[in-house]
Write a protein that binds this DNA or RNA. Sequence first.
DNA 1: GCGAGGCGCTGAACCGGATAAGTAACGTGA
DNA 2: TCACGTTACTTATCCGGTTCAGCGCCTCGC
Lengths: 338, 338
Amino acid sequence: MKRPTIADIARQAGVSKGAVSYALNGQPGVSASTRARILAIADEIGWRPNSAARALNGARANTVGLALCRPARFLGVEPFFMELISGIEGELSARSYALMLQVVTDHDEEMAVYRRWWGEGRVDGAILVDLHFADPRVSEMEALGMPVVVLGHPSESGSLVPVWSDDGAAVRETVEYLTALGHRRIARVAGLPKLVHTVLRDQAFGAACAELGLPEAVTVHTDYTGEEGARATRRLLSSASRPTAVVYDNDIMAVAGLSVAQEMRLDVPGDLSIVAWDDSPLSQVVRPPLTALTRDIPAYGGHAAQRLLSLIEGGPVAGFEDRAARLTPRGSTAPPPA
Amino acid sequence: MKRPTIADIARQAGVSKGAVSYALNGQPGVSASTRARILAIADEIGWRPNSAARALNGARANTVGLALCRPARFLGVEPFFMELISGIEGELSARSYALMLQVVTDHDEEMAVYRRWWGEGRVDGAILVDLHFADPRVSEMEALGMPVVVLGHPSESGSLVPVWSDDGAAVRETVEYLTALGHRRIARVAGLPKLVHTVLRDQAFGAACAELGLPEAVTVHTDYTGEEGARATRRLLSSASRPTAVVYDNDIMAVAGLSVAQEMRLDVPGDLSIVAWDDSPLSQVVRPPLTALTRDIPAYGGHAAQRLLSLIEGGPVAGFEDRAARLTPRGSTAPPPA
DNA sequence: GCGAGGCGCTGAACCGGATAAGTAACGTGA
DNA sequence: TCACGTTACTTATCCGGTTCAGCGCCTCGC
């Protein structure tokens, strides 16, 4: 019932452990016939290399760590993380790496997890998400010396390898599109203001509005939940200078905003245009279907995983700018009311 | 820059490796003063036990495996898996176990992953989800001898430990509630018909309808996507004997169904009542908010993880019936039109 | 016909901890 | 005072692979 080891193979084949090791790893040092015999026996008794024994010889753990710092109820809502994970996963499993996942509640805990994993030799590297400004995790990771890829803008990634996309370009495209439709009062329901990408989007939004001569851009920050998205929308739509278009930082808030508009007897898109950042099946399922900023999130995760594996395997790795989200117009955007 | 080992500690403390090992593991055999000195040195140089070395001595890997068999684009949509994972995770990390995750495309690949993980000693056990009838994974897992908990009904879990909930009760509660409101023609938009829980819900639905003297229960099967949910709804609402209430097997289909109804100028809940299985923030964000079958998915995952850890640690473990989903009435259900 | 060199393999050390067995030093009771 | 038990260690071995040094044996070249 015990798992077979190379010693078992060696005994059956009548050779030494060393010979078996050479044979199984495709190293020179055994004849073709012996190698074939050893491989046949290994296959027959169902031998698998014990990963612990391998790792003990300085080999890699063949595992990448990901500690997600969000409370459970937020995590489930957005498709983003699940898509990101499956993208990362796809790239990892193609190269026989495993993914170690932990859900934590704050950054201290997150770093403790990484420190432990790294110290115990359980992971070869990690992917950092939700980058903040002056993020303490960056310098701590640099100090640890662990291979790390950061999903976030290179201006804040320190010496870690960044993988990012130009959110500013997507914001500009959206504002230009809405302006071309005739909108002048555009508001933005944004995510957490401490995140780098939120601020970059904020800045790009302000700049684009200024450039196009629009009145001062209004941005409301939220925690990404539908609840706060609804509340922000209600406030915006109740204000004196009600916007004619709102851009949301995720799809769940956009759906919530849509519901609030309908509840307030505003026609979408007749009275109010809505744009969602990140395009999930959700956007296409509601009425009207939402105009959305589409990006390939699994591919994004895949690119990050690729860089991380190169980094782990010793190559010098450059950062990577993924393609920017592009606007997919659907039924939720139209010219503003006359 | 190398990671410190107990040999480093032993050298600094002027004792042997063995003494250090005893001290660090709280075993008798070292004096209090020596133990304190060793612990201080270990702490100071940032020593962590190498998990590979531990595992090599027959210790556990302290890792649980989860291979999710769904294409990326389905996975992201439903909050279910992410909530399940964070529930599992919560229980695991409380006991210092890690979660190894892999996304696969079919059951063969899934079993290959488990076989590899188990053979390589990377995991101590696994959780099986999406149970089928006569699921080949059950017998294969039994043959492997790996500790496994199945999320699914005990009738199909073989000798593996089942964790399940009584979906039939929830179905009955829903049908009774709708009947009490006055509905007679109730339809069900279900998930994949090969899944055990789908069939159990189908049967309970049919039985409840028959018992309450309702006309023949209509059930349409889908792949859980909003698209198919919308298509099924369109078909149901176009039929001669249009239902006055529809029960959906997940929230994304319920939202899609709501949109289709509104697109067909039917008032929800005036003309059509809608019930969603699984209550996510999504249900509360749309108008009207959806009446839903609420269950605590993280807790469900947590219960499975608990049983698995007991199983791994050697105890005989009984299956566990989690509490059934309960109906949370909201704005999407009302008496049928007169 | 003999040394050089390569092939195919063996034996042993090693990775970092856990642990069984062995050994001094010391205290204790008879 | 001596046998005995306990304390506080040390030494050695093991886990399952990898890897290096070494060692016959065969072949080849001169």
